Computed example of a mutant assay.
Amino acid sequence: MTNQLDGRVVVVTGAGRGIGREHALLAAAEGAKVVVNDTGAAADGSGRDDSIAAAVAAEIVAAGGTAIASTDDVTTIEGAERLLAAALDAYGEVHGLVNNAGILRDRMFVNMSEAEWDDVITGQLRGTFAPCRVFGAHWRDRSKAGEDVKASIVNVSSTSGLNGAVGQSNYGAAKAGIASLTQIIAQELSRYGVRANAITPVARTRMTENVPGIKEMVAVPEDPEAFDVYHPGNVSPVVAYLLTEACPATGKVFYAKGGEIRQFQPWSYGKIIDKGARWTVEELQQEMADLV
């Protein structure tokens, strides 16, 4: 059955290439009206190319779908407000937000500059915060005005943040922050009819296909009949499902690779020791062994 997103208006940031493009294409194929947002920047955030978003929107329209392009910078509240306004001006309402935009600047931690840290935190974490903040406030206001809001936010975290990855302390910190942000806004926005979930995609993208050791793993299979596990489009059905009106999930983080989907478990308590009084360091030298 198709058209699972019929009647929905979906905004996808970072939708000009790779995984974001696949999200936009599938949302449109499932009946959604789509806003394709992308500044056209390189993977490290440099440069700009307004034609990137326009090309994906044109591709959707050529296939019989409905889409417009946006080149607004979503790392700022002002840019996110312009993005929301574009969706409302074109379609009158909005039901889904996919925060896929982000940048990458790998560096071993002790060699990392302030700019490399700040730029990635801005491109990833603030680039998720600003749209969530603006769209969340919009849906809250609609709900308070008496509307029956059924909206969905899908953010993009990473195993680099939840499991760790050498050379990606900036990127991993931002992606872990996105997972935590998702859980918190799911709690805060539920009263207004807004759900929030995150995914950790494993796929072939600009950020993976040139990394030594990774690019070989995610390469296109030599056998054209073989399942392309790392095709970015494999992740998009999970995103589309989370965008559907009837989806019950909120506050969850899902791992998606090929045909494999897992649910991440949140941080939880493990072993415990309790003296019932203040410990001495000498005591902990012995008792902490079970915890560490």
Rank of each mutant, 00 (worst) to 15 (best):
285 Q>S: 11
277 A>Q: 11
263 Q>P: 07
95 H>T: 07
100 N>A: 09
132 C>D: 09
109 F>V: 14
263 Q>I: 12
111 N>S: 15
182 T>K: 03
126 R>M: 13
270 G>P: 00
161 G>I: 04
173 A>P: 04
96 G>S: 08
192 Y>Q: 04
57 A>R: 04
48 R>S: 13
17 R>M: 15
65 G>E: 01
120 V>H: 03
219 A>I: 04
201 P>S: 06
114 E>R: 13
9 V>H: 02
211 V>L: 11
159 T>N: 15
202 V>I: 13
225 E>K: 13
12 V>K: 04
42 A>M: 13
201 P>G: 00
65 G>Y: 01
118 D>N: 12
288 M>H: 11
291 L>R: 10
51 S>N: 14
67 A>H: 08
237 P>G: 10
282 E>M: 02
145 A>V: 10
225 E>V: 02
124 Q>A: 09
208 T>Y: 08
148 D>N: 14
138 H>S: 02
68 I>S: 08
83 L>A: 03
70 S>I: 02
100 N>Y: 01
278 R>K: 12
89 D>T: 11
161 G>W: 01
43 A>G: 09
34 V>A: 10
146 G>D: 13
212 P>R: 07
134 V>T: 08
9 V>Y: 00
46 S>H: 07
165 A>K: 14
79 G>L: 09
119 D>Y: 07
287 E>D: 15
58 A>M: 02
21 R>E: 13
14 G>L: 03
243 L>W: 03
76 T>K: 06
25 L>C: 09
177 G>Q: 03
245 E>S: 11
222 E>R: 13
77 I>N: 05
159 T>W: 07
206 R>G: 12
31 G>D: 12
61 V>L: 00
130 A>H: 08
131 P>L: 08
224 P>E: 13
280 T>E: 09
272 I>Y: 13
197 N>H: 02
192 Y>E: 00
145 A>I: 08
63 A>S: 12
143 S>Q: 01
150 K>T: 12
242 L>N: 03
30 E>L: 12
160 S>M: 04
196 A>P: 03
286 Q>S: 11
196 A>Q: 03
31 G>Y: 05
268 S>L: 01
171 Y>V: 01
245 E>V: 10
67 A>G: 00
258 G>E: 05
169 S>H: 01
44 D>Q: 01
6 D>T: 15
